[in-house]
Amino acid sequence: MSMNLVQFQRGLSLPEFQRRFGTEPQCQAALEKARWPQGFRCPHCQHTACYRIGNRTHPLFQCTQCRK
């Protein structure tokens, strides 16, 4: 039987993955950091401050300057 190359890829083990991203807040923080490594920046006007609208399934970020 041939070796399954996907199974033997280098990367995170399942326990390490769960330690880093196992909860919703951990996963959300990782996504925000990946999207904005130096903090929020509006893609429309480049402003750095935002409102975080949290009464949704996932938060919505709205620029305080242009409101996009």
Rank of each mutant, 00 (worst) to 15 (best):
V6P: 00
H47I: 05
R19A: 09
P59G: 00
F17G: 08
R10G: 09
W36T: 06
Q26D: 14
R41M: 07
P59F: 01
G11I: 10
C27W: 13
G11A: 10
K68I: 07
C27G: 04
K68R: 14
L14K: 15
Q18H: 11
L14R: 15
Q65L: 15
Q26C: 04
R52N: 00
E32T: 05
S2Y: 10
S13A: 13
S2I: 02
P25A: 01
R52V: 04
N55I: 06
L60M: 04
T57Q: 06
E24F: 02
A30Y: 09
R41N: 06
A30R: 03
M3T: 14
Q26L: 10
P25M: 02
Q46D: 05
Q28W: 00
R19F: 03
Q18C: 00
C50Y: 08
L60K: 03
Y51F: 11
F8I: 14
F8L: 04
F21R: 06
P15T: 13
I53M: 09
Q46I: 07
E24L: 08
L12E: 08
M1F: 03
P43W: 13
V6S: 09
F40C: 04
R52E: 13
G11M: 03
S2P: 13
G39L: 11
G11Y: 10
Q28I: 05
Y51N: 10
L12C: 06
P25K: 04
T48L: 14
M1H: 05
S13I: 13
R41W: 00
T57S: 07
R41A: 12
R19Q: 14
S13W: 07
Q9N: 06
L12T: 12
L31P: 01
A30H: 07
F61K: 02
F61S: 05
F40T: 03
K33G: 07
F17E: 12
G39W: 11
Q38S: 13
Q26T: 10
Q28D: 07
C27L: 13
E32H: 10
P25V: 01
T23S: 06
L31K: 09
P15Y: 03
R20Y: 05
S13K: 12
C50W: 02
M3I: 15
L31F: 09
A29R: 12
E24R: 13
C45H: 14
T64I: 11
F61H: 12
R56K: 07
F40K: 06
Q9W: 09
A30P: 06
T48V: 10
R20F: 04
E32R: 03
L14D: 11
W36G: 00
I53K: 13
H47C: 10
L14V: 15
L5E: 11
L14H: 11
G11C: 11
Q62C: 05
T57G: 03
L31I: 15
I53Q: 05
K33S: 06
P59W: 00
A34T: 14
M3K: 12
F17I: 10
Q7T: 13
G11D: 10
N55K: 00
R10W: 07
H58F: 01
K68P: 00
M1D: 04
Q28G: 01
F21M: 06
A30I: 13
Q26F: 02
V6M: 11
N55C: 03
R52C: 02
H58M: 01
W36D: 08
Q38R: 15
I53T: 08
N4W: 09
K33H: 09
E32S: 05
H58S: 06
H47W: 14
P43Q: 09
E24T: 12
C27T: 14
E32V: 12
L5F: 12
